[in-house]
């Protein structure tokens, strides 16, 4: 396993574009901390974002994982191109001739996905912990470590998303087209959502039930948007008469759906590789 990982990490790390993207991903992650410094001073009305409660435990787990997940596209590019490059350089063929089995090849890519997601998760966890300890109004141990399922959801979400990218890289063989396909897929899911909601099930919640099984929808449902949960936003909502009964927790069903998709993507990737003549 260490061997497979070191093979793959060497491929990524020696490539300047991948290295720069990976590094900028982690640097950008730390910039979430800069939100803390957002401050408006309008005379009598002072607005300091860090004191609006976004860095309160346990809300911070939700907020930071949601924001951090937006940056995943940086790593997605790295992962798609690490796969597509193997095709364009002809090195996939050479690796197999050099005695790597097809299973090992997929395993080395998937391990890399898991490791990158893992590092990103630990990174977000540590950063949130530090920010929280600095700005949170509640510092009891029990509160700090509550709602940690967001961290788990974040990890599952990244692994699922990157597995999708990996599969697209193998399917399409060209990084730009694979990313384009991802975009097209996203739009298709959007269209499907619209059709289900307004055409097929206009008066029921069946559309949500069906949509939760789509890969990208399932991934985005893992961590729902945290903004309407903020007390400020909530109180404005109540004032203008919108009652919000949204469930902000991590739905376990979604976790299993995303894990399911991850398995499906990896199996399909392996099958594609097995069937194709190089």
């Amino acid at each position: 396993m260490k061997r497979l990982l070191s093979i793959e990490l060497q491929k990524i790390w020696k490539n300047r574009a991948s290295r720069v993207l990976t590094l900028s991903y982690f640097i950008l992650l730390t910039f979430i901390a800069l939100i803390a410094s957002i401050k408006f001073d309008l005379g009598p009305f002072q607005f300091h974002l860090a004191e609006m409660g976004i860095f309160n435990f346990p809300f911070i787990w939700h907020f930071n994982t949601y924001i951090a997940a937006i940056l995943k596209f940086f790593l997605a590019i790295v992962i798609v191109s690490m796969m597509a490059n193997e095709y364009s350089y002809g090195t996939l063929k050479q690796n197999l001739i050099d005695s790597l089995s097809k299973k090992e090849f997929i395993a080395s890519k998937f391990l890399t996905v898991v490791v990158l997601s893992g590092i990103s998760t630990v990174f977000v966890f540590v950063m949130s912990m530090i920010l929280g300890l600095c700005f949170s109004s509640y510092n009891e141990i029990g509160i700090i470590f509550s709602d940690l399922d967001y961290i788990l959801a974040y990890f599952v979400k990244l692994v699922g998303f990157f597995s999708f990218c990996l599969f697209l890289g193998i399917l399409v063989k060209r990084s730009a087209f694979a990313l384009g396909f991802l975009l097209v897929w996203n739009i298709l899911e959007g269209i499907a959502k619209g059709l289900l909601k307004f055409q097929l099930f206009p008066n029921s919640n069946n559309d949500e039930f069906v949509m939760q099984f789509f890969p990208l929808e399932a991934m985005s449902n893992l961590i729902v948007e945290p903004f309407t949960r903020l007390s400020v936003v909530k109180s404005i909502g109540t004032q203008i008469g919108i009652e919000n009964f949204k469930n902000y927790g991590v739905p376990w069903l979604e976790i299993f759906i995303v894990i399911g998709w991850t398995v499906i993507f990896m199996l399909m990737s392996y099958n594609l590789l097995k069937k194709r003549d190089l």
């Binding site: 020696k14 490539n15 350089y89 002809g90 690796n95 050099d98 790597l100």
Partner: peptide
């Protein structure tokens, strides 16, 4: 077929890892 962005030695190191 080799990785164009790696040096000769680095490419061979990768092959060593695989083999």
């Amino acid at each position: 077929n080799f990785y164009p962005y790696m040096t000769a030695t680095e490419n061979l190191e990768l092959v060593c890892k695989i083999k």
